[in-house]
Simulated scan of single mutants.
Amino acid sequence: MDRDPLGDARTLVRDRYPQAVYAVLAGSVLTEHRTAGSDLDIVVVLPLGDLLAPRRESLVFASWPVELFVHDEQTLDWWLAKERPERKPTLHRMVGCGTPVVGDPAERQAACRAVLDAGPDPLAPAQLEAARYGLTDLLDDLTHAADTGERQVIAAALWADAARLALVAGNRWNGTGKWLLRELRAHDPDLADRWLAAQHDPAAIEAFARDVLDRLGGPLFDGYRAVAPRPEVTAPARS
């Protein structure tokens, strides 16, 4: 734990990508969340058109597990734009909240932080209805599950989905793994505590999910309709 993550990240980038325009060290390694297993998450931005971008690399350097996210400005733009409708701003967080180790990414960092602060766009009506329908369907499955194993699996799925939709209801960014909990805590600490406490109690999970559904407009089944685009079908060639 006495290793220097910033110095090691800087050395790695300069050795592996000497052409880098800038690089940012992100993740828990520079925070109170650092553990003995923390890795170095590094976003590296190369000159425009560099053939090494985009790519992701996993390696070990100076005893650190390292994840490298390599881009040029054009590919970085594309991946950042892709995150916004998905409501999972992983790359925005890494760039916007990371610590520079090479070059000066100040302008890009400010832009990423502005997106994070603004929050996601609200779901479109059809997306919101689909989310309500999905959670309603899981609740119904849990209510009528007779098999103990199936009930446990349904409860686990409902527990995770309810947390994600609680973030939708609060117009907050989503997350996976530890970031799901971190986002929920940032949104509503009491709600996060309720969610954690409910994890192994199907009745508590059901109550939590119903509360989330009420925040989204209530259960939705009767009358729900989703219209899909008609696929283009090519007629077979005549012999």
Rank of each mutant, 00 (worst) to 15 (best):
Arg3Thr: 11
Leu6Arg: 15
Ala9Gly: 05
Ala9Trp: 05
Arg10Phe: 01
Arg16Thr: 14
Gln19Ile: 04
Val29Lys: 09
Leu30Cys: 06
Arg34Lys: 12
Arg34His: 06
Arg34Pro: 00
Asp39Gly: 06
Leu40Trp: 06
Leu48Val: 14
Leu51Asp: 13
Ser58Met: 06
Ser58Asn: 13
Val60Pro: 00
Ser63Pro: 00
Pro65Arg: 01
Asp72His: 04
Asp72Leu: 10
Asp77Ile: 00
Ala81Cys: 01
Glu83Val: 10
Pro85Tyr: 08
Lys88Asp: 08
Val95Tyr: 06
Cys97Trp: 14
Gly98Ser: 06
Cys112Thr: 12
Cys112Gly: 08
Ala114Lys: 11
Val115Leu: 13
Leu116Asp: 06
Leu116Met: 09
Pro125Gln: 07
Gln127Trp: 05
Gln127Arg: 10
Gln127Asp: 11
Leu138Pro: 12
Leu138Gln: 11
Leu142Trp: 04
Asp147Ile: 04
Glu150Asn: 03
Gln152Val: 08
Ile154Met: 01
Ala160Arg: 15
Ala162Leu: 08
Arg164Lys: 14
Arg172Ala: 12
Gly175Ile: 11
Trp179Ala: 06
Leu184Asn: 02
Ala186Thr: 07
Asp188Pro: 01
Pro189Asp: 06
Arg194Cys: 01
Gln199Lys: 15
His200Glu: 13
Pro202Lys: 04
Ile205Trp: 06
Phe208His: 03
Arg210Phe: 03
Asp211Met: 13
Asp214Thr: 14
Gly217Lys: 08
Phe221Ile: 05
Gly223Tyr: 04
Val227Trp: 07
Arg230Tyr: 10
